[in-house]
Amino acid sequence: MSDDIRPEDDNEGGPVFRDKRRIDPETGEARQSPADAQAAAAEAAEAAQPAASAPDASAPDPDDLTAEDRALLEGEAQSLADERAGFEAQIAAGQEEVRRLQAEYVNYRNRVERERAADKAATTASVLSALLPALDDLDRAEQHGDLDGSPLALVAQKLRASIAGLGLEAVGVVGEPFDTAMHEAIAQLPNPDPQATEMTIADVVQRGYRIGERLVRPAKVAVFVPADAPAE
């Protein structure tokens, strides 16, 4: 029997054969002993450790830098800092420009909306001005009682409602204070109230009209003048 295959007794009393040949008879390759396998595994594990754990021999030691090298590094650092500051300044300037443009756009939009509203009011006032004589005729007919019980009363009601829907408002009401911005005084009467201190409307001769803040036509009125007011 070869020395590479030796029988041994197992615990049950039977022979056990262990193959200790160093050459595998099937593949022809050398076999590793358990000790050789452990040594190879330890060597592979040591080689697999990260290279970062070892000191980088190529990195210069700060203590070994010369004054010229230090000055060069400091110059590069200052250059990078200046470049960063320049970029930050450009970003800040760009943000400020964006805010300025946004504010200009908001102002432009508001101005356009105001101008559009003013143009609309002017156009509406121009169209409704042509209807004011018809409204005056209806007012006079109503004062004389010509509308009572006639079909024209319904027409007058619808016409006034339609015009009011376009924003036209009547100006001049008996008893309200006289306002030169909206009223035109065509007659002055002494106020029967001795306690009165301001001019008030005594009668509306012709209605005035406005659209919003735009006066289409002032109201022609007769006014009460306080007794102590100077004569004009």
Rank of each mutant, 00 (worst) to 15 (best):
E113Q: 11
A103N: 11
F87T: 13
G172Y: 06
L215P: 01
A227D: 13
E142N: 15
G149M: 09
D3Y: 03
P151A: 02
A89L: 06
A130C: 12
V221T: 00
D9W: 04
P192Y: 01
E68N: 09
D136R: 08
P190I: 07
G165D: 09
V225I: 13
L80D: 14
L131R: 06
V98H: 12
A44T: 12
A117Y: 04
R99M: 03
N11K: 09
A30I: 11
Q32E: 11
L65H: 01
G86M: 07
R160T: 01
V98K: 13
T124E: 11
P60L: 09
N11E: 13
E26V: 14
A67N: 08
L101E: 13
A54R: 14
R21M: 01
A170M: 07
G149H: 08
G14P: 00
I186E: 08
I5D: 01
R217E: 10
E104P: 07
Q102K: 12
A164C: 05
F17N: 00
D61P: 06
A231C: 03
N11Y: 09
K220Y: 03
E142S: 12
A181P: 02
P25Q: 11
E29M: 11
G165I: 04
K158S: 10
A71R: 12
L131D: 05
R116W: 08
G14H: 10
G94S: 08
D69V: 05
I201E: 00
V216F: 02
Q32Y: 00
Q143K: 15
V106C: 04
D4L: 00
E88Q: 13
E104W: 05
E74Q: 12
A52P: 01
G212I: 05
A52F: 05
Q206W: 06
D10N: 15
D10F: 07
H144E: 14
Q157E: 11
V221N: 00
E169D: 12
G14V: 02
L154Y: 01
P218A: 03
A52L: 08
R99Y: 02
L72E: 15
G13N: 10
T123C: 11
P62M: 05
V221S: 10
L101K: 14
L168S: 07
S129T: 09
R99Q: 13
E12M: 14
E176I: 02
V205Y: 15
N110Q: 13
Q32S: 07
